[in-house]
Design a protein around this nucleic acid. Sequence first.
DNA 1: AGGTGCATGATTGGATACAATTTATCAAAC
DNA 2: GTTTGATAAATTGTATCCAATCATGCACCT
Lengths: 285, 285
Amino acid sequence: MNQDGARTGKAATVKEAKKVGAAAKIASGTTKTAPVKATRKTSAKKEAGTLAPRTRAARATKEVKQPSSDEIHERIMSAIMEHKLPPGTQLVEERLARIFNVSRTKVREAIGRLVHDQIATNIPNRGAFVSSPTSQEARDVFFARRLIEPTLARSVAMSATPQQVAQLRAHIKREHTARSSGAPHEIIPLSGEFHILLAQLSGNSFLVRTLRELESLTALIIILYDAPDEHHCPYDDHPLLVDAIEAHDADRAAELMLRHLEHVEHSLKLEPPVAGEIDLESVFA
Amino acid sequence: MNQDGARTGKAATVKEAKKVGAAAKIASGTTKTAPVKATRKTSAKKEAGTLAPRTRAARATKEVKQPSSDEIHERIMSAIMEHKLPPGTQLVEERLARIFNVSRTKVREAIGRLVHDQIATNIPNRGAFVSSPTSQEARDVFFARRLIEPTLARSVAMSATPQQVAQLRAHIKREHTARSSGAPHEIIPLSGEFHILLAQLSGNSFLVRTLRELESLTALIIILYDAPDEHHCPYDDHPLLVDAIEAHDADRAAELMLRHLEHVEHSLKLEPPVAGEIDLESVFA
DNA sequence: AGGTGCATGATTGGATACAATTTATCAAAC
DNA sequence: GTTTGATAAATTGTATCCAATCATGCACCT
């Protein structure tokens, strides 16, 4: 429901930014058909439909919802995790400001947080783009996950209350319905939330935050490196894990988590650290 | 992209080096600071009159240093880690803006990052204050450190090159001189940097970032919970660790790191899980 | 005297205006 | 036809401005 309108060739610019930096030339070559300025400001149909009046007028006439920068951050993050904003997409401040009916200030704040968490990458005077983690960074993320999450699973298995198990089961049910109802873009954030929920149940506030970052980065990695057919978050790893937790079988929970993460990582196509392009960038650094 | 990667040869490397240099200069020089005008009460009206031409005038006549928001963040963070800004200190935007000779905008950005990392805590419409982690949060931080850092030490021990060992030794020398020259407030960030350096040598860019957060939080925790006499980062834990790394004794390195962290944590007075708010109030008393 | 409400000051939250920079476009020269 | 220079457009970066909010203190009423 967002930007796909007949604006200035948006999908094209989205694609063109995929390889940030060196690929500008290539990108411009691929987008030669795009820049039709004829459809300039006439895109006001969208704005007119939802929130045509300016801020002043809006305040005077009708209070339109003004999301906080937290909500904006949340919305953008969700869009990224649902693969609606693929890596390389530029997050243009003014555009987002209009979409959310706020000023650029709040959008900048939200984007700043994304950049801080390396979900987006800022290029000075150019803009912020949804990050494209390198395969090395992807390996780093999974190394951290294999390091942290089995211990988390063990910890939760040792102290899990029936209520907590019920929470986990409820989440798994959500995953199941999303999967069976064929909503693939909802599965990815849901699967991530399962791991975050586990961190929450462990009660360690710092690791909850860390898991949030890891999960959002993992979502990006899956888009970039997923083998087409492989299904990343497989059938019933999560239910089995909850079974072990319910049985307070800490060792098995940790083991299952480790296997689960290994399975996800191995279903990706992470090439060895070759990276001609990366070397190119380092040269100009 | 990432500003943390030690081995990811990117723009990050250059930037990183610059940052380290700047931080060192701050630490040694103590900077600052002609407190500009003592005429704080002169209101924004007059300021506006003089400020508008300031940009051009300053450039024309004399280039006053205009730190980036990165540098501002760095400086505030250093001040916090050196215990110059204790927990509970309000970070007043306009005051800092004057100190750094920038507008509030950049300061806000820097403070926003501190809040995001929970180094500072924002109270809506009131301001941002240096955080006072609860004892529970302190335990969470040390749990995470015990979870992550022994593995980091093991990893570095397995793959350490002579150059890397030399880096570690050089850092230990800095710690030693700071300790013997009786500069206690320099010891704390230096000790933290040792652990960050270890993460950098491991080559995992994500864990470098995580360690940064952990170390800055640890600095706050030490201020709040340190037993007066106990010396947190003891005598020669770090040198022994480097010895083990140099000998490629991975198990011993991991074990030493774990003991080191346990020692630091046990030298704190973290009461059993009660009364986070009570601690908070006592701090502000 | 003591509590309650209102004015005041200080500070943040948010929006706008403007400057700086980069990219794209186009015309002219070779 | 290709290259090159100038110019325009788009976008970010920064400063300033105004409104909203909270604390403080003073006056006023009981």
